[in-house]
Design a protein around this nucleic acid. Structure first.
Length: 577
RNA sequence: GGUCCUGUAGUGUAGCGGUUAUCACGUCUGCCUGUCACGCAGAAGAUCGCGAGUUCGAAUCUCGUCGGGACCGCCA
């Protein structure tokens, strides 16, 4: 092959018996038996055992050093075969070992069990962490999936075009990462939260179908399914296209990718469509995990006349759980504890007896009429439990969180299924209590339905051609039909408190482009890291990324963010307070 | 911005008011010709994250701070 090796470690087989080979890799383990020494050599493709009776060959060899080994491949005797490794039928009788680069420090952790270590130390020594086969395989898996996505999207006649990383800050959406300009005093570039405007401009430029594996940057706090800082999307856009067209393409890409890279049962195409409104009512979230059979019922009307203070003049939601009335007090206490952890004062519940009477902490506050109505509304059966979630405005969300927690706690989620659905008909606007105005709920450039007269409608009643694909409770992607009509766009921004001058100033050339013939277009963007997380069944999104940051936004290996020197600051006209 | 969990040799842990600070892996030394999580004998290695307080006495309790993790807000 070259001066370092003739074979990869993992590729040596019985067919190589008798030949003199050269391999290169890391010293995984050394077993010194006095008169005979065994050493395992590892490269990306596998591990092979080398052996020698000449101790001097192994002088100064330490674990995890890189070495180049010359030797003759020999067959192992029957009783010495190690069936646990692919190369276990052979070994290399070593004639020469050259240390290419010594590992002179004590290892911070054992490579073989690196995943047992704290994330802190794993990330600091990520290059050692990734020597572990399982960790490395996740990165290889990512490469395979990304390649597949690229090939698949290409095969659907999408054209790959890259868009700028240094771009303009935008007033909507997440916090931008800003980059100070040296040449323009007091001005800043921003890293793109998504290539949104550029891809729309590509449509205006006449590219029929665009895609990109696009890095996106958002300065918002992390979660276990949301990494801080930067992530990747399969971003695509189609001209002269409808919501249905994009959904069809997306279903094709998702279904084929999930089928290829997972053995789990996948929802059949076309995926189930659920309106935003229905999803909020039934699941208390816009990203429902449909594997969870629990659903939310609205009980507000039943308690209109109640004298029970916690249910009076508030929204009351209920979650019925069948067959758990015999759970222990401590089990229910744990549910109450969770409720408290999400800022509920507590959570009321009733258990249904065999004769359909109730017991439990709330029962004494219920009237006979209320009891009957509850049985009907929640379809209560003997031995089921009804949990109550009461709050002036947050009841739907809180009920949604309780539904998730109950599903998790009761082990209702089938780990061998991918339940994918499409949530559509998102509202274009929502009311923001803090700023006391209407703000864009999703993307400001989405097309409202019945766009001609939106100005006469109550803003929160305006529905957009906007959709999410949700898999097992994880938002996998967002898509939309974009607005291609300047008048409707002006109206939309007017509702959000921007006049035409603001529009021109903040989205200058984009706004301008809309005067030059815009094709109706629509598109979407898949969160690649999240999709990998789902495919691999990872609990944390960092496992899918080669060099992730901590949740606080630091790179423990590179030490970023760092200070910069005075000259650099001066160059970009910045003074640190 | 808020809430909760967490920090003990290189690593993973035990200890939770008085210990010579536990154990395992790793490291180092010696022995060992068939191991593959090799074995055996021995050794070194810890200002118990940092600072203050409570106490006769703090790894242990309290407060602050810094790091890590999870969640709410935020983000989509």
């Amino acid at each position: 092959m070259n001066k370092y090796r003739t074979h990869f470690c993992g590729d040596l087989t019985l067919n190589d018996i008798g030949s003199v080979v050269k391999i290169a890799g890391w010293v995984e383990n050394i077993r010194d038996h006095g008169g005979v020494i065994f050493v395992d050599i590892r490269d990306q493709y596998g591990t092979v055992q080398i052996v020698s009776n000449d101790n001097a060959i192994f002088d100064n060899v330490t674990r995890e050093s890189t070495v180049c080994v010359t030797g003759k491949v020999i067959k192992r005797d029957e009783e010495l075969i190690n069936k646990k490794i692919k190369t276990g039928y052979i070994e290399i009788l070593t004639s020469k070992l050259e240390i290419l680069s010594a590992c002179s420090n004590v290892l911070p952790f054992e490579i073989k069990t690196s995943s047992d270590n704290s994330l802190e130390v794993r990330l600091k020594y990520r290059y050692l962490d990734m020597r572990n086969k399982k960790v490395k395989d996740k990165i290889m898996f990512r490469a395979d999936v990304v390649k597949y996505l690229r090939d698949k999207t290409n095969s659907l006649n999408f054209t790959e075009i890259t868009t700028p990383i240094l771009t303009a800050s935008s007033p909507e959406g997440a916090r931008d990462f800003v980059v100070p300009s040296r040449k323009f005093h007091g001005k800043f570039y921003a890293l793109p939260q998504a290539p949104q405007l550029f891809k729309q401009l590509l449509m205006i430029a006449g590219f029929d179908r665009y895609f990109q594996i696009a890095p996106c940057f958002r300065d918002e706090d992390a979660r276990s399914d949301r990494i801080y800082g930067e992530f990747y999307q399969l971003d695509l856009e189609m001209s002269f296209a409808t919501e249905d067209d994009v959904c069809k393409v997306t279903e094709d890409i998702l279904y084929s990718t999930f089928s290829k890279f997972s053995d789990k049962l996948i929802s059949s195409k076309p995926f189930k469509r659920i309106s935003y409104k229905d999803s909020m009512l039934k699941y208390g979230t816009d990203k429902p995990d449909l594997r969870n059979p629990l659903y939310i019922v609205d009980l507000t009307n039943i308690f209109v006349k109640t004298s029970f203070k916690p249910f009076k003049d508030v929204v009351v939601k209920g979650i019925k759980v069948p067959c758990i009335a015999d759970k222990s007090n401590s089990w229910f206490n744990e549910v109450v504890d969770y409720a408290k952890s999400i800022n509920m004062p507590g959570i009321g519940y009733i258990m249904v007896n065999d004769d359909m009477t109730f017991r439990g902490p709330i029962d004494k506050f219920l009237t006979e009429v209320e009891r009957d109505e509850l049985i009907k509304a929640a379809e209560l059966k003997a031995n089921s439990v009804l949990f109550f979630i009461a709050d002036k405005c947050k009841a739907p969300n809180l009920a949604g969180l309780m539904r998730i927690e109950l599903g998790r706690k009761l082990n209702l989620l089938d780990k061998n299924r991918f339940d994918i659905c499409i949530i559509n008909d998102f509202p274009m606007f929502e009311y923001d209590d803090e700023s006391e105005k209407y703000i864009f709920m999703h993307n400001p450039f989405s097309l409202p339905k019945d766009g001609k007269d939106i100005i006469s409608k109550k803003p929160t009643d305006i529905i957009a051609y906007q959709f999410d694909f949700v898999c097992n409770g994880v938002e996998l992607l967002s898509g939309a039909v974009r607005n291609h009509d300047l008048k409707i766009m002006r109206d939309c921004f007017k509702i959000a408190g921007y006049d035409e001058e603001d529009l021109k100033e903040k989205f200058g050339s984009f706004y301008n482009a809309f005067n030059y013939g815009v094709p109706p277009h629509a598109g979407m963007a898949i969160g690649i890291d999240r999709m990998l997380m789902l495919l691999k069944g990872e609990d944390n999104i960092r496992e899918t990324i080669a060099f992730p940051m901590t949740s606080g936004g630091q790179d423990l290996m590179m030490g970023s963010p760092t200070t910069v020197n005075e000259t650099q600051l001066k160059d970009v006209h910045i003074k640190i307070r």
